[in-house]
Design a protein around this nucleic acid. Structure first.
Lengths: 232, 232
DNA sequence: ACAAAAGTGTTGCACGTACACCCATGT
DNA sequence: ACATGGGTGTACGTGCAACACTTTTGT
């Protein structure tokens, strides 16, 4: 083992699943590869971790280099380690995911030649991806879907000010089922993590809806759930 | 990148957190290291993944080599990738955990020299461990604790036949809090995943309790939970 | 006036929680 | 007889699911 450790290359990679919401459609960030293997295929933003950076730091750097996005909080969700998942050799990959707000100010522009472009792809139109990225994406999507079921994380995707109907549509897209309007609103408001604003929607040709903001301070309590059988 | 891929050593490792229950005490499986670095320290069973094996397969092999245990179903829960977590070089580690039944037939015997012994350590007495294994253990324990809160996985730890009181004690040990006896029994029986046997406890100096078995067939339904707002 | 979406309450049910006493058995 | 854990039921509160009509606004 000592010999192994003396001269090694760190061959592990990061792949990122970044969700965004645009015109009511759930999308994820893809790149078009500009390198072999899988040159000109679509792929998740991903690359090799350097020897002197932690995997969390690598995730930040790689996302930036391939898409121009900086400072996105990503969470590791699984490591894929089949022997032949990469055609050029043994590479295991640590997959991260994140949800971000698309406010129009975030331009996508790869900083390296490794990607020829970065773009948003509607989740419902996902094409075949390079490597095992389709499998990685499926697992990441499952993860998000299950997480949203017990933690109100969907706000990350919405603009700062949003209507309850927009929030509900987002839940419906992610969970892929219709929800009851009255029950949804009741439950969301009961969480007490929304601030009602004095503003209304503008530019719609029907009754304008109230706008809400997500209240980060009150959000904390949703990270303390536990099974109990009485006597807390 | 292509150059990197041409001659590489795969330097990633696996570490295993194996929980067991013995005399009502929650324990985890440790080894005593027989190699530098950290020679003669206690550590989680773990070692380097080979180039031609998947990380899941590596987890099986490594656990076997270090402890003699075979065919234990382990689940990956996190990958640790700080730059300096291993003193000899850059090694990231994929951590797995599992819960197993200690029925006395499983002898612990390392098959390689890499460990001088393998043994069960009570969780409440955890010593300092080699590398960042204490941190890994803490995260794995958190994971188990949170998982048991929404999925009745604790049966893995118990003998085939057990009493409800034993089951409750186990929950209390893992969750680190007292539970109400009536509510606990009501809830567990309501899950309808226990088979009541015609047997009773033996060799106790008080009223013998009924024995139960875990019914694997009925267990399936606990893997289908989702947030909903009506209209399923 | 009409089209389109906003907004709003009640009821039944399932589940969680709090809580205390008698029973069976071995010594 | 007594000590030890085994075993049991009820009442209350909360949260989820089902369900339909009126209001507001722009065209």
């Amino acid at each position: 083992m000592e010999k192994l450790l003396q001269n090694f290359d760190s061959i592990f990679s990061i792949d990122c699943i970044i969700f965004g919401l645009n015109e009511g459609e759930l999308k994820i960030l893809l790149i078009e590869r500009n390198e072999e293997p899988y040159k000109s295929w679509y792929a998740l933003p991903g690359n090799i971790v350097k020897q002197n950076e932690s995997i969390d730091a690598a995730a930040q750097r790689i996302l930036y280099e391939l898409t121009g996005l900086k400072g996105i909080y990503m969470e590791q969700f699984h490591t894929f380690g089949e022997v032949n998942r990469h055609p050029s050799g043994r590479v295991i990959t640590v997959a991260y995911n994140a949800m971000i707000r698309l406010d129009g100010t975030k331009e996508l522009k790869p900083v390296t030649n490794y990607a020829s472009k970065a773009f948003w792809m509607p989740v419902k139109d996902m094409p075949a991806l390079a490597f095992d990225h389709t499998q990685i994406f499926n697992k990441g999507f499952d993860k998000i879907r299950s997480k949203i079921s017990y933690e109100p994380i969907a706000f990350e995707l919405l603009p700062e000010k949003f209507t309850l109907t927009q929030l509900q549509s987002l839940y419906e897209v992610i969970l892929n089922k219709e929800l009851d309007k009255r029950n949804f609103r009741k439950k969301m408001l009961a969480y007490d993590i929304l601030k009602e604003l004095d503003e209304k929607q503008e530019g719609v040709s029907f009754r304008a809806a109230k706008l809400y903001k997500f209240d980060k301070r009150k959000y904390a309590k949703f990270f303390q759930k536990e099974l109990s059988f009485g006597k807390d």
